[in-house]
Structures are given as C-alpha cells and as structure tokens.
C-alpha cells in the first residue's frame, strides 16, 4: 500500500464577488510510496501548491480524498510537516525559537524541545547562528531554519512548497544538494513543489508534471538517476534528456510563460 494515496481529488476555490467556483485541482490521483521523493512541477496556476496544501490539511477538497498511512487527511497532523517559502519564520524569534516553534505547537513530549531544536539546527549547519534572528540571515540560511523546523517534529511526510523559489540560482543549487544530503539520512517520504525543471529532476525519484485550466496531472516521469545525486549529474546527457522531455511536457504552458515574461 502506498503511504500517500490521492484519489480523484478536486479542489475548488470560491472567487470573491462571484458564485462561480474556480477549480484549482481537477480529479487528480497519485500514489506515493514510503521513502519516495516526488517533485511536482508546473507553471503558475496549475494547482501544484494547492495540491500540497491539501496534503498538509490546510485546504479542503470538494471531492475525492487524500489518505496518509491509511488515514484520511482533513486537518494538519503531526505525521506531516511543511516547509514554506522564506517568509514563514517568526521574525521576533531567534533561529532556536523558530525551530522550537513547531515542537511547541505539537506539544512535543518525547525529549527536551530545546535540545532537540539545537540538534536539528546543527544538522542544517547553523550551529553558530542559534541566537540570530531571521532578518540577520541570508535567504539560504532562512530556508535551512525552515527545513530544520519541519524535520524537528519528526514527520512521516515532508511537504515542501517551492522552498527555494526566492533564492538566486547558485544558492538554489547548493540548497538542493544540502536538502538531499539531509534527506538521505532517513529518507522520509517527500513531496516537493517547484517551477524549476532542473530542481525537479535533480531531487525527484519521480516528477509529476501538472497542467493548468483546470489543474491536472499531465504525466509522471520516472527519474532513473542513481542516488546519491551529485552536481556533476546536472551536466550529464541523461539529465539533459530529462530536461528536454520535461520542457516538452510543460509545452504550451512554458511558451505562454515566456511570452508573459518577455512582454513584461
């Protein structure tokens, strides 16, 4: 049995000042095995983030279901932890306070929350920055804190919503590499949303390609690159082939996006 089972999931938003519901995700089905790293890629508006929020229990579905370990998701739960874009750290708390935050919210009792938080801060390489505040850190460091906060609560499933989306290309590559190193330790089931094709291929065991209007799964591509993944793989022919295939898969959406960026 798959650890995450998404069955015919449809999610609708009610538009303000309108009775017409907007369909963000349309009849999506997806199975994810325990320990699998699945990336979801698609242009903006394809419902990829909405799908992730539904798995987190932060968005309700109109029909269909998501079950994790056989339990239907309706609320956030300690079996899942989410890594957001960088703006989600509490700015008045130190790094230590932020990593402790998730543990506090879950009333963590298994061991001392402060000691535990310190351990995960060391794990993401920020041991010397425990007392710093988010505004004193770089974007990459802030995302390490975000990752430590999610891992500290020891979830079964790690949900990541474009966690490196606000970072520059170099930092992004380094962070992807670091994330995999951390992930390799206990290989938690991971669902990672991105709009970056290279990132999707580099991180994922499988890449789910989503299309828009309404948001649906277009195809799922198995990535047969060996683990641990290395930066050198980015230049391999195999990687280039995956990159090309994904570009084609995203096809029209990408072309539309380019036209928008060029027009702007």
């Amino acid at each position: 049995m798959a650890q995450i089972e998404i069955r015919d999931l449809t999610i609708e938003y009610r538009k303000p000042n309108s009775d017409e519901p907007f369909v963000a995700v349309d009849r999506v089905s997806l199975d994810i095995a325990k320990g699998e790293f699945v990336t979801i890629v698609g242009s903006s508006g394809c419902g990829k983030s909405t799908l992730l929020l539904a798995a987190a229990g932060l968005v309700n579905s109109a029909s269909g279901s998501i079950t994790i370990n056989g339990k239907e998701v309706s609320d956030p739960g300690p079996d899942r932890a989410m890594v957001f874009q960088e703006a989600s750290l509490l700015p008045w708390r130190s790094v230590l306070g932020n990593v402790r935050f998730g543990l506090e919210m879950q009333r963590w009792k298994k061991d001392d929350p402060t000691e535990r938080a310190r351990r995960f801060i060391r794990m993401v390489g920020l041991g010397a920055f425990s007392d710093y505040h988010p505004h004193q850190l770089s974007g990459g460091m802030r995302q390490r804190v975000n990752i430590a906060r999610a891992l500290a609560v020891d979830p079964h499933v790690l949900l990541m919503d474009e966690p490196f989306g606000a970072l520059d290309a170099q930092t992004r590559e380094v962070m992807g590499d670091e994330l995999l190193k951390i992930w390799e330790r206990d290989r938690k089931t991971a669902l990672f949303v991105t709009h970056d094709i290279d990132e999707a291929v580099f991180l994922g065991d499988r890449v789910v390609v989503m299309g828009r209007d309404p948001g649906h799964i277009r195809e799922i591509i198995d990535i047969d690159l060996p683990r641990p993944r290395t930066a050198a793989m980015l230049d391999s022919d195999q990687f280039a082939a995956y990159r090309r295939r994904l570009r084609e898969g995203l096809g029209e959406d990408m072309a539309a996006m380019h036209m928008i960026t060029e027009a702007a």
Binding site: L58, G77, A81, L90, F101, V153
Partner: peptide
C-alpha cells in the same frame, strides 16, 4: 497570514495563534 498558515501546519490551536503569533507580532 503566512505565519498563521505556518503555525496551522504544525497543528496550532486558535489560542496558540493568538498567544504565539498575533500577540508577539
């Protein structure tokens, strides 16, 4: 709102949001 959502994702209850997010913020 981003902070509230992050807190919710860790299972925060309304009183947690009030005491740990809204008030200090």
């Amino acid at each position: 709102r981003d902070l509230v959502r992050a807190a919710h994702s860790f299972g925060a209850r309304p009183l947690d949001i009030f005491l740990r997010v809204a008030l200090p913020g």
